[in-house]
Design a protein around this nucleic acid. Structure first.
Lengths: 241, 241
DNA sequence: TAGTGGTCTAGACCACGGG
DNA sequence: CCGTGGTCTAGACCACTAT
């Protein structure tokens, strides 16, 4: 009946409590057993119980206060994991072909206006790239990107003729923190023609700034026709990791 | 010089490694020291090292393979934590007033068309609520919500005249998993008038289905004028938790 | 002040999987 | 095979905080 793969005890304890929380047997604010009680219930060491509880805390399901005990956290829907902002990955999931078509590539120094829009200091030398993400033969998104050459000097030699700058950067910049903004706009005449849609078509706009070790690496604006793409996300407390 | 608040050793180890990763000293795929080496370096027990490494794995910064060792993970920008989809919380952060103005409330049985749109079976009895989220006197979003009475029978007695249904649900539904979809649309004549904007104004649309223990609790469609609200998110691998 | 969680140790056994 | 990580123990001391 049970799955043959026996789970670790700390994972079992964690799941037991998690189940009682998500099913509503335990309500937000309810107190959980003390560690001492749990180690008696499960007949294990306190470290094992502690590992289970620590995981629940990391997942935001439980809050703990010294001397008081452990309690079911009050749910927050404020944070949601949004997936598939990586367009090639999105295409792969759909089983469709993907290609990037470069429209332009220039090297220049940021003027004041552009720098202000991105919130960086002006006069930084950059590579500007625009292009289309094409999935199954249809353009899914228009992309306008800036890559800062002082952060990624190797970009000077990259042409991005068929390889999307985003993928290139993931392979050349070791790790990054990113800020995203999702907004909406009308396609407008130029992008409408490129995306083969109407100028008054509503579009999703993703703005992303990526940083590495304190210096901005890239800034990108991706425009998706609303009828072709939507951002999907899921919030399942503690189901993963 | 050092902050007087000494951090836990496992947290210190974790930060040391994390720093080397995010600054690029360690590149994706690079091998990390074995646990035995780290316990010698830091002069601590293996459990302590293991706790640090487990945290890095949970944050997706590190992958571990038995016999092979531990390696820096390849970065993915696929998942991003989006914040502030909770409108009252958003108002609070801005230091502005918040109120919910109910526009309508009905109890009915879902017809086939509506059920299909939400992906649930028809003939379920629901409460339908529409209203406006008003921040600093200005309408920020229009909301159209369905609450399933078989999942939340208490909703029959809730009027939602000034309390937003979202907040009410958080207080009455213990925990939930949620699916979100972000899209874009034009305001249209009706919502434009309610939101005090133009019918052809681009708007962000948030669709959210919330489930509890396998049954759908609510479905909501929130419409934000694009010039008043945008979703912001951050992706800082391992910075929090 | 006393109870609780936070942390750490110095061992141990085992499953997995690379060589 | 045998090194690695995964897990667990039975203690211990300490920091915090509710009472």
């Amino acid at each position: 009946m049970k799955p043959h793969k026996a789970k670790a005890l700390h994972a079992q304890i964690r799941e037991d409590i998690e189940t009682r929380i998500v099913t509503g047997q335990l309500m937000p604010g309810d107190q959980l057993p003390f560690e001492v009680e749990l180690m008696q219930q499960y007949g294990c060491a306190r470290m094992t119980v502690n590992k289970a509880m620590s995981g629940l805390v990391a997942d935001g399901l439980v809050v703990r206060r010294k001397k008081a005990g452990s309690f079911v956290a009050h749910p927050k829907l404020e944070q949601n994991v949004m997936e598939t902002m990586d367009i090639p990955e999105y295409a792969r999931r759909l089983g469709k072909s993907y290609r990037f078509r470069r429209l332009s590539r220039t090297e220049e120094f940021l003027d004041n206006a552009a720098a202000k829009e991105m919130g960086v200091r002006p006069r930084r030398e950059v590579v500007r790239v625009t292009g289309l993400h094409i999935i199954g033969g249809q353009p899914l998104a228009h992309e306008a990107r800036v890559i800062f050459l002082d952060a990624v000097p190797e970009a000077r030699d990259a042409l991005f003729e068929s390889e999307a700058p985003g993928k290139w950067l993931l392979d050349h910049v070791p790790w990054s923190s990113a800020e995203n903004e999702i907004s909406a706009t009308l396609a407008g005449p130029e992008i409408a023609e490129l995306l083969d849609t109407q100028p008054d078509a509503p579009c999703l706009v993703l703005l992303r700034s990526t940083w590495r070790d304190g210096v901005q690496v890239t800034f990108v604006r991706q425009t998706f026709p609303a009828d072709r793409y939507r951002f999907k996300g899921r919030f399942t407390p503690g189901s993963d990791r």
